[in-house]
Write a protein that binds this DNA or RNA. Structure first.
Length: 853
RNA sequence: GCGGGCGUGGCGGAAUUGGCAGACGCACUGGAUUUAGGUUCCAGCGGCCUCGGCCGUGGGGGUUCAAGUCCCCCCGCCCGCACCA
């Protein structure tokens, strides 16, 4: 018995594909184009199973589309700037560039071992100056177009490391490495004006009909368009006014307090005269900056002593608090509190003994007795206790209140977005330098185009706290491009989402002197199918949508939406293991033994934990390289596609990999050791087919139809099951009857073609073993004959009162009367009816007969 | 806290979108062949059962001739929340 030699085979086919350049993309106007893109990887060091899954899914799409006759673009590159490179520099003394490019070469080799149908000639890394020079020019164009600007914003500042921390690096108010209490600091930073496109980004979501609904909903919520009113409260004894935003101006008569964010200018002003308030504000700032942290903590406040005057009720004063649940980033950073109709306000009012005035009456409630208990009433109803608004519905009252505010000069209706402008400044070394020069005389001046790119200095030092670019002895000192006086470079670099917001368009012409060759971009864009993790559902995808619009406005490209189709894959998970001392163990450190799991080294008992996303911290990782070395890429790919639907989490199991491996060997035997010799390739269908031959022939056509349909719909697990169903049918054939050897060849060739996108190496070998000319990956996708998909006879279920009592065989499309009488004649039906006369019989042709007694 | 998603045998999952629940696998059980090689082949495999059936798609209610699928309420788990990428 000859075993399939995957090592020899995979290496050979990969070389053949590369030598013949079969996956090279080119503009070909005689065919429809198809651009398949998987989210490009961050070069962290080695590929992980998430990559294997992502790139397997994309490769199935790419190979399938190629077989369907499309001109396919399927490129690969590296999202190469980012924090981990700097951490490596700090921890191991490796330069970020060296670390990054070495990782890239390791990971490139790993990806190549997967046999992906990529056009490697288009590869680039975003840290290549030839890449990032273009985004520096884009930024300058954005500046000119008013899409980039500078303003002050709060950051998490680690006083020991002298650096800005990400929210995830702040743990319990302290820096993750230094342990020092994190300060909120205001820094002057660069922003991109994504809010300028808020309405368009929101409205265009409706047209992205090949995106998952959940992603569209997430983006919709993220943009968070709301209409309400801006209300300007007069302050007792002061000239200035307090501006708040509310989505519920209809509840203004129920207002019993106002509240400021701890970061509000007025709060800071009051704190200068009130040390206890200053202490309260400091405490709020320590509690964490993320929206999650702020909104889930206990509501607390501090009375500033200021009193706001109600715009509609003369003489009514509202206390002004500083409250920890008011976000500075949303609206105006100040609110009015209506405890009756907002849960947060209610919690706050109860805690501080503030009055609760209901102003929205639920339908059917009695205005004399209706009162608010522990729950605020947030549904629709009729306004009451509200002067001129009484009797209106919530929506009319919003409009009426807005109009009255405007008439009084105390506010106006307003639309507000949750979406904030994109802060792109990072105080880091390993990123694209922001091409601006700061001059005392001339202000912030863009670097002239002839001086681009602004390159990172190679000789930065990472051994002391702070931004290496800022410390560099010479790099930042330059002459002002306008007045030639002494000036300094901007030492901030771009957020790495900047690079990933346009790489997809660069792949159309990756070596061009300008960012985009219009001909190539116009031909290939948009991406027809984009594939990646849901974790990017909002930020990366929204930034890319914005960036594409900004590039269009600046004349770079002609489209708005970068990704016509989107697919978000699930995570790769694995069981977790803990040894006797509670320490995490990797799957390779344990073994299964008689139903339990023990440690490989000493047989100590191991506790099995639930399956979780593979992560270094829990050690539940399986290295793709080891799997590919042990089983081959095809087995790994097939397992990735089997069982779990691609959008759901996949559990990696040893048994599942074995199953995929056994299946491929089984298929190999089917092709190389058929029960009878196969007729030569191209033999015409014989006139006579045995019943078995006919069944196998039909099974092949059904498999073509089913696999095609499921591949289109991203149901790859079902497509794999259908391929297996075909191999089961072919294994049944003994080949001796009329036409059976022919049917077997037809079935095996079909099987090979269908398996091609999933397990491309073994499929090439099968094609060769079947004696066919040419490369399998260049064969057209097979077509199913619709006439062979339907059977002459069908099995129809027979129910009595909706319960299954048996089945009957009928000719296809039999008359309803025939179906009915056949069903009534069924012994089980007679038994169930027990002499009763059926009241009604429902016949669904070719499916079911339901006898209602 | 807010937002999003998911619950079907021991396990992963399937089910022409309202029409035979459990396709295809994994695990397991019995048998055959080979037996030191990540074998292969055959049979069985939701639960209960008086062998005629009864119960079963997280739980409870509803619509319908018919519900995993549609509607209402509840429970559990997972993910995101703006400087990780």
């Amino acid at each position: 018995m000859s075993r399939y030699n995957f090592r020899e085979s995979e290496a050979r086919w990969q070389e053949v594909w590369e030598q013949r350049g079969v996956f090279r993309a080119s503009i070909d106007r005689s065919r429809p184009k198809y651009y398949v893109l998987e989210m490009f990887p961050y070069p962290s060091g080695r590929i992980h199973m998430g990559h294997v899954r992502n790139y397997t899914l994309g490769d199935v799409v790419a190979r399938h589309r190629r077989a369907l006759g499309y001109s396919v673009l399927h490129p690969m590159g590296w999202d190469a700037f980012g924090l981990p490179a700097e951490n490596a520099a700090l921890e191991r003394g490796v330069h970020p560039a060296k670390w990054t490019y070495e990782n890239i070469s390791t990971m490139r080799a790993q990806l190549k071992s997967m046999g992906l149908s990529l056009d490697w000639s288009r590869e680039f890394a975003t840290c290549d100056p030839d890449y990032y020079r273009h985004e520096q020019k884009m930024f300058i164009d954005f500046l000119k177009a008013g899409l980039a600007y500078r303003k002050e914003a709060f950051v998490n500042w680690d006083p020991v490391e002298q650096t800005v921390l990400a929210n995830e690096q702040v743990i319990d108010g302290r820096g993750w490495r230094s342990g020092a209490p994190v300060e909120k600091r205001k820094l002057s930073q660069w922003f991109l004006k994504i809010t300028a496109f808020a309405d368009d980004l929101l409205d265009a979501l409706q047209r992205l009909d090949r995106w998952p609904d959940k992603v569209r909903v997430m983006q919709e919520k993220w943009i968070g368009r709301s209409s309400g009113a801006e209300i300007r409260f007069a302050l007792k004894g002061r000239e200035d006014r307090l501006t708040v935003y509310s989505t519920r101006p209809d509840t203004l008569f129920g207002a019993t307090f106002c509240a400021l964010s701890p970061d509000h200018a007025l709060a800071e002003e009051c704190a200068r005269k009130d040390p206890a308030l200053a202490a309260f504000i400091a405490e709020c700032r320590r509690a964490g900056t993320s929206e999650a942290a702020i909104e889930s903590q206990e509501k607390r406040g501090y009375d500033t002593g200021l009193r706001a005057l109600h715009p509609f009720i003369p003489g009514k004063e509202l206390p002004v608090y500083v409250a920890n649940f008011v976000l500075i980033e949303y609206g105006t950073g100040a609110i009015f509190g209506c405890p009756g109709h907002d849960q947060r306000d209610l919690d706050f009012a109860r805690k501080y003994g503030l009055p609760v005035i209901p102003v929205v009456l639920p339908p059917g409630a009695d205005p004399k007795t209706f009162a608010i208990g522990d729950e605020a009433y947030t549904e629709d109803g009729t306004i009451f206790n509200s002067g001129f608004l009484d009797g209106l519905g919530v929506e009319e009252a919003k409009r009426a209140a807005g109009a009255r505010l405007e008439a009084l000069g105390a506010g106006k209706p307003q639309t507000v977005y949750r979406l904030r402008d994109w802060l792109v400044s990072r105080q880091r070394y390993w990123g694209c330098p922001i091409p601006v020069i700061h001059c005392e005389q001339c202000g912030a001046v863009p670097v002239p185009e002839k001086d681009l790119p602004v390159m990172l200095p190679k000789d930065a030092s990472f051994d002391r706290p702070g931004n290496p670019l800022a410390h560099h002895p010479t790099w930042k000192h330059v002459a002002c491009p306008v007045c030639s006086g002494a000036a300094e470079r901007e030492t901030d670099t771009f957020d790495t989402f900047f690079e990933s917001s346009w790489y997809f368009a660069r792949f159309c012409d990756p070596k061009g002197k300008t960012a985009f060759a219009r001909e190539a971009v116009d031909y290939w864009m948009p991406v027809d199918q984009y594939i990646g993790g849901v974790e990017h559902a909002v930020l990366h995808l929204l930034y890319s949508r914005f960036f594409t619009r900004a590039l269009r406005q600046c004349g770079y490209i002609g489209i708005d939406e970068p990704f016509a189709g989107l697919f978000t894959q699930g995570m790769v998970c694995h069981e977790t293991y803990r040894g006797p001392d509670g320490e995490w163990l990797t799957p390779s450190e344990v073994k299964r033994e008689a139903g339990t799991v023990v440690r490989l080294s000493d047989g100590a008992p191991v506790t099995i934990g639930r399956s979780e996303k593979m992560s270094k911290s829990k050690k539940n990782v399986v290295d793709p390289t080891e799997i590919i070395a042990a089983y081959g890429a095809d087995t790994a790919r097939l397992f990735m596609l089997s069982d779990s639907p691609p959008e759901r989490d996949l559990e990696w199991t040893e048994a599942g990999v074995d199953g995929a491996w056994r299946y491929l060997n089984r298929v190999w035997r089917l092709v190389t050791e058929p029960p009878v010799p196969l007729p030569p390739p191209g033999t015409p269908k014989p006139a006579e087919l045995s019943a078995e031959a006919e069944a196998a022939w039909r099974a092949a056509h059904k498999a073509i139809a089913a696999v095609s349909e499921h591949l289109e719909a991203f149901r790859f697990n079902v497509a794999v099951a259908q391929v297996r169903t075909l191999s089961n049918a072919l294994a049944e054939l003994d080949g001796t009857g009329p036409g059976e050897a022919w049917a077997l060849r037809f079935g095996l060739e079909t099987l090979t073609l269908l398996l091609g996108p999933m397990a491309p190496h073994i499929a090439e070998s099968m094609w060769e073993a079947l004696g066919r000319e040419g490369l399998l990956c260049e064969q057209p996708w097979p077509k199913a004959d619709p006439a062979l998909l339907v059977e002459d006879r069908v099995t129809v279920a027979v129910q009595v009162n909706g319960k299954l009592r048996g089945t009957i065989e009928l000719p296809r499309d039999a008359a309803n009367d025939d179906a009915q009488s056949a069903a009534l004649a069924h012994p089980a039906v007679q038994r169930s009816l027990d002499g009763k006369t059926p009241r009604k019989v429902i016949v669904v042709p070719n499916r079911i007969v339901n006898v209602v007694a």
